[in-house]
Design a binder for these strands. Structure first.
Length: 300
DNA sequence: AAGTGGTCCAACCGCGATCGA
DNA sequence: CTCGATCGCGGTTGGACCACT
């Protein structure tokens, strides 16, 4: 299985790069060229999207319809947003994954401009990696608890801290690097996206949102499954407050914090440089060091 | 400078669902 | 109803890039 099964690979000496061509259909595979992108965008801007196989032919692209669709949806679409996942988006991804599991396209509906592919990649490269480092299954109670009582509350705190501190402004991780040419577009776009993301978060019970927000399903109300693991964490949240979103059981959280304090020496605070690095790597580096304690701790 | 290993992401695949003739 | 075409989703992978040795 894999990408190379039914394709031949040859070097295009004129172009100086790889050209993957299907033996039978003379269809190109692999990375898209600028010319192909232009053809696809031009055709769609004139004729619209859909009917991808015929679109590919009519646009003069030696690609499968599938490939064209993927390229358009994940890369060329004007509203597609790529780059650093903001704190709010991270929180939303974690929250929605708790609720729906690997329903990437469904999750992507709540993150405007983000593709299911990008969210999936984020989950695999960041979240699953950390589960692996902790030597526990990503679906295990231990890992879920770690996210629920450590990672997610800290994300909330960092979001709050960022929004309360105009000087720090963006909630994007401080490790984010944007090129000067990116900055204008990203800044203006982020504002809109973060507003929308906040509304989505709020609609899921995390924060307050203006009335009239419509879910992807065009429903005025998001149906929250009573069986959801996280439902109970949201029902107590008040309008305009998110402090207690992940605080359904003070005793439970306190016991977790006590445990954290035991192995870390102090209770984590958003003011700690530890949480404020803007990179979850530090957090997980520490956790990696605490692997043995974690492994022996068990559930609480 | 060269080699190595890890990370990230674009693009692929298989497969089930849906559409429409 | 049937069946081929198309769409959409989730899983997987190749390779570019980067940090480290």
């Amino acid at each position: 299985m894999g990408m190379g099964d039914r394709r031949s690979l040859r070097i295009n000496k004129n172009m100086g790069d790889f050209e993957n061509v299907d033996d039978d259909m003379d269809l190109r595979r692999g990375p898209w060229t600028v010319d192909e992108d232009f053809k696809l965008m031009s055709y769609i801007s004139t004729h619209g999207e859909g009917r991808w196989n015929s679109l590919a032919r009519c646009a003069g692209l030696k690609r499968t319809g599938k490939s064209c669709r993927l390229r358009w949806l994940n890369y060329l679409r004007p509203d597609v947003r790529r780059g650093n996942i903001t704190l709010e988006e991270q929180l939303l991804i974690l929250e929605l994954h708790f609720r729906w599991g690997n329903r990437w396209s469904k999750i992507a509906q709540y993150l405007p401009g983000r593709t299911d592919n990008e969210i999936k990649n984020y989950w695999r490269t960041r979240v699953q990696k950390h589960a692996k480092q902790l030597r526990c299954d990503v679906n295990s109670k231990q890992f879920k608890d770690t996210m629920r009582y450590l990672w997610m509350p800290r994300l909330v705190e960092r979001i709050q801290a960022a929004s309360a501190s105009p000087s720090t402004g963006s909630v994007a991780p401080s490790s984010c690097v944007t090129t000067p040419s990116d900055q204008f577009a990203m800044t203006s776009y982020d504002q809109g996206v973060n507003n929308t993301t906040s509304m989505a978060m709020d609609h899921l019970g995390l924060v307050n949102i203006p009335s009239g927000y419509v879910t992807p399903e065009n429903s005025s109300v998001v149906a929250v499954s009573p069986a959801s693991d996280l439902t109970e964490y949201h029902v107590g949240s008040e309008v305009g407050k998110i402090e207690n979103c992940y605080n359904p059981d003070q005793n439970l959280e306190q016991s977790y914090l006590n445990w954290f304090e035991n192995i870390n020496g102090s209770v984590p605070s958003y003011s700690d440089s530890f949480w404020n690095t803007g990179s979850d790597e530090d957090f997980w580096l520490l956790e990696q060091q605490q692997q043995q304690q974690l492994l022996s701790y068990g559930s609480f």
